[in-house]
Amino acid sequence: MNHDLFKNSTVNGVSFKFNKIIKPLKILLTNNKAKVGFIILAGMIIFGVLGQFFAPYNPNRYEFVRSMPPSYSHLLGTTVYGQDVFSQLFYGAAPTLLVGFSVGIIGTFISIFVGISAGFASERINNIVTGIINIFLIIPGVLLIMLFGSYFLGIHQSLGYLPTILILVITGWAFGARTFRSITLSIAKRDFILSSMLIGESRLGIIFRQIIRAIFPVIISNFFFTAMYGTMGLTFVEYLGVGNLLQVNWGTMLYWAINNEAYLTGLWWWILPPSFMISILMFSFILLNFGMDEIGNPSLRRFNSKKNKKGDLNEHPEN
């Protein structure tokens, strides 16, 4: 009997480690919204990676008949400059995703750092950092994009997407920091954190071993929110003309289409495809964002979810 139990626990031990690796994915797939969002996003990533190889033409070639409506040889027609829109759409996917993800990852890291340290620090530091967060939240992002964008205008070519990502991280980190600060404040008062302080765990130890894990769904949810901001922000940076307009991405496609008044001249095949691609990508980020919110906040979930009893989810005993 005893032997049996022992055997069981090693099996449990192995599956626990296995769980650790695929846990984030498993959490995602317990929620319908997140599941749909994940499938769309995966499709987008495949589209972006394969697009580089399967695009029928070089997106930067200006040699086709200008302003051609969609046809068999040009599935989405051509631009007023004679570029193939379909190829541009394919090529533009990867950079657009790249900007969205980079802003999501870097922005989330900054907001975790600022938010958690504010929430777990002394009251005075908390107040100061909260003030800084609020300033970034209330200053209209457009102003900051213009300001920092004009700073990089001359040197864009040599730096690729770095300035754009930097601008969007600067204007986008504060939303997450606010969330992390308030959630850390509430967790820091819980008994299981006090308990770790009592056994002599350091603040950093508590943050890395416990707080980060407790707010993991929120981190993921915030990543998708910031990635969403990054994607939308890319289109704004390009629209305002402070991005690198020679690169092909969905933002620059819109910029050129709008700049050439495609909406007035009836070139719908130039302006609508990038709009809808951005929309679908944003849609998947929103779904993942809200799906993760529902996972992190069980009261938003459907009642009949039995999975949470099995223990794959992070559930807190209170609230």
Binding site: D191, F192, L194, L198, Q210, A214, F216, N314
Partner: peptide, 20 residues
């Protein structure tokens, strides 16, 4: 604190739900 430890009232709140 190595000399003094405290047991909390609510065992549902004093253990970290994310750890074994």
């Amino acid at each position: 604190r190595k000399n003094i430890q405290m047991v909390f009232q609510d065992p549902y709140a004093s253990l970290d739900p994310n750890h074994t």
